[in-house]
Nucleic acid binder design. Structure first.
Length: 273
DNA sequence: GGGATTGTTTAAAT
DNA sequence: GATTTAAACAATCC
């Protein structure tokens, strides 16, 4: 569930709690939650000097553990990052624990074990294909560049928005919400959209992402900030999770269909085919 | 107990 | 080769 706004919120809440802290122990409770890369234990002794986001990926910069330069976390569906006080014991879904030199403990919890932590060296980072193939950041993309990403594509817009190699950070929630705001049917092929329509979609996508970041993201079920607080943007969904309910604009029943392999909610009246 | 849930990878098709 | 689509996978909850 954590998409761009949720990961961004975790970055912002986590940063002040861990910046400058030293990692004094690494505990892996579930080896499957560690993804390839380098040995996580080699992070011991390093100092956290940065927390960043790229797409849906959280990146921690760690100094003093050469050749390692940090680690990445992908939360996938149910991953969470929390900072707990000293002596907090692991929960049923705790997969990795980093102990910090002030006694605090950084927990990676993940009920369904889809997410991962990955230790990075400079070389490993450079050769990480997932990283290398990520598309541009939507919030930093000029409208003309956004249009270029999609022009000539024959696939449905819904699927293209979800493709991390085209655009990084958009998931099911913000794909549906931005298409609704732009009045575009999710099955519309990119090639059938005008330049103006694509530019409008760009604007609506940025707006919905920024609004959600302001609300600390959307908490459907699992997502929480690094402080454990729920976000509030789930209360402002116009279509996501509202299949069968009346459209906010016109009152028609919202449709629910599988498009590009995912449940998609849209208004058949406001987003005509 | 079956269906829903999600992002990513891989394979197959165009 | 590039693009698109589908299936597989991870595991749990309700």
């Amino acid at each position: 569930m954590p998409e761009l706004p949720e990961v961004e919120t975790i970055v912002r809440t986590l940063l002040p709690m861990v910046l400058g802290k030293k990692i004094c122990a690494v505990q892996v409770l579930n080896p499957g939650s560690v993804d390839g890369g380098e040995n996580l234990a080699l992070l011991v002794g390093g100092s956290i000097v940065g927390i960043r986001r790229r797409g849906k990926l959280l990146l921690a910069d760690v100094d003093g553990v050469a050749p390692l330069i940090g680690f990445a976390v992908h939360l996938k569906m149910t991953g969470r990052l929390f900072v707990y006080p000293q002596n907090t014991s692991s929960g049923p879904h705790t997969r990795v624990i980093l102990d910090l030199d002030d006694g605090q403990r950084l927990f990676f919890d993940d009920a369904r074990k889809f997410g991962y932590v990955r230790a990075l060296s400079e070389i490993g980072f450079r050769n990480w294909s997932f990283w290398n193939k990520l598309g541009p950041e939507p919030l930093e993309l000029p409208p003309a560049a956004f249009v270029n990403l999609f022009t000539g594509r024959r696939a449905a817009m819904k699927g293209l928005l979800l493709d991390q190699q085209i655009l990084a950070g958009v998931g099911n929630i913000y794909a549906d919400e931005s298409l609704f705001r732009a009045g575009i049917h999710p099955r519309t092929k990119a090639v059938d959209l005008s330049c103006a329509q694509l530019e409008a979609l760009c604007g609506h996508l940025k707006a919905v992402l920024e609004e959600s970041i302001r609300d600390c993201g959307s908490s459907i079920k699992d997502y929480r900030t690094a402080r454990g607080d729920a976000g509030a943007f789930q209360n402002k969904f116009r279509v996501y999770g509202r299949g069968g309910k009346p459209c906010i604009t016109c009152g028609s029943a919202l449709a629910s269909q599988t498009i590009a392999g995912r449940t998609t909610i849209f208004c058949p009246h406001c987003q005509p085919e």
